[in-house]
């Protein structure tokens, strides 16, 4: 279960504060997979970053009793000077018991199919190779909830098919929070949806209805494509509890 209360996030750029979203409240029960819909810049990836603990909110709380992955698909979290194997070893040393580290490395090596490149610096990888290793690394760990950001759009056709099969398999024992512009992929993996628009969240129990409303808004141009306008006085500054 994930319970979010009063979640607010803003960024300051060149002295000007942009509010991404304000006072979000929602609860996701165990066993539910949720699609997060919204236009570019609506704050979908930011929300995943907050849920994954990569970024901190201005205010609000995120309570959970589940183990949550880092956002799967974002090719962050890799040190360019280290090889793929060394990067995987680094993450495994944190997230896995010592005895399981070799099996995690082997899993990613076999999934990514990088051959000799697995032992070359990460900075030399193509974007497709990076996606393969990032997705493989995330799937090597057994989390309760996976935060999945645009993963079905990454890599070549073969990788996308492989990822799809793996996600379907993992869905048997874990939940997803998915951001994807591939709406068909969302329908395949999710049970319900949130639409993030103009800094607010709308919850839908019917995924098809949410997708239809989201698509209509996008096509009619009534959707907000930018963060909320600067409003520093409205942004609480107290730390997260």
């Amino acid at each position: 279960m994930i319970r979010v209360r009063g979640l607010t996030k803003s960024y300051v750029y060149q002295g000007s504060r942009s509010v991404i979203f304000k006072n979000l409240d929602f609860t996701i029960a165990t066993g539910e997979s949720v699609a997060i819909l919204g236009a570019n810049g609506a704050g979908k990836s930011t929300l995943l970053r907050l849920l994954g603990g990569i970024d901190l909110p201005d205010s609000g709380t995120i309570e959970t009793d589940a183990s949550i992955s880092w956002p799967v698909g974002i090719v962050g979290g890799f040190q360019g000077s280290l090889t793929g194997r060394e990067n995987v070893t680094f993450v495994s040393r944190i997230y896995a018991a010592k005895k399981d580290i070799p099996s995690k490395i082997r899993y990613v090596e076999e999934f990514a199919e990088l051959g000799v490149y697995f032992d070359r610096p990460f900075k030399t990888y193509s974007s497709g190779m990076r996606s393969r290793i990032a997705f493989g690394l995330s799937m090597a760990f057994d989390f309760d909830v996976y935060l999945i950001d645009e993963v079905t759009a990454a890599g070549d056709q073969r990788f996308r098919e492989k990822s799809k099969r793996l996600l379907l398999d993992r869905k048997q024992r874990a939940d997803f929070l998915m951001v994807d512009h591939n709406l068909w992929g969302l329908k395949l993996h999710c049970d319900r949806a949130f639409i993030l628009d103009a800094g607010k969240i709308e919850e839908f129990t019917n995924l098809d209805e949410a997708v239809a409303i989201h698509t209509e808004r996008l096509l009619s141009g009534t959707v907000s494509t930018h963060p909320l306008s600067p409003d520093p006085s409205q942004v609480p500054s107290e730390p997260v509890t």
Partner: peptide, 18 residues
């Protein structure tokens, strides 16, 4: 390829939870 699997209600062996 395999991964240590467990049911939703089971105890996870991965991650830092716990």
């Amino acid at each position: 390829m395999s991964i240590a699997g467990s049911s939703r209600s089971g105890k996870r062996s991965d991650g830092i939870q716990g």
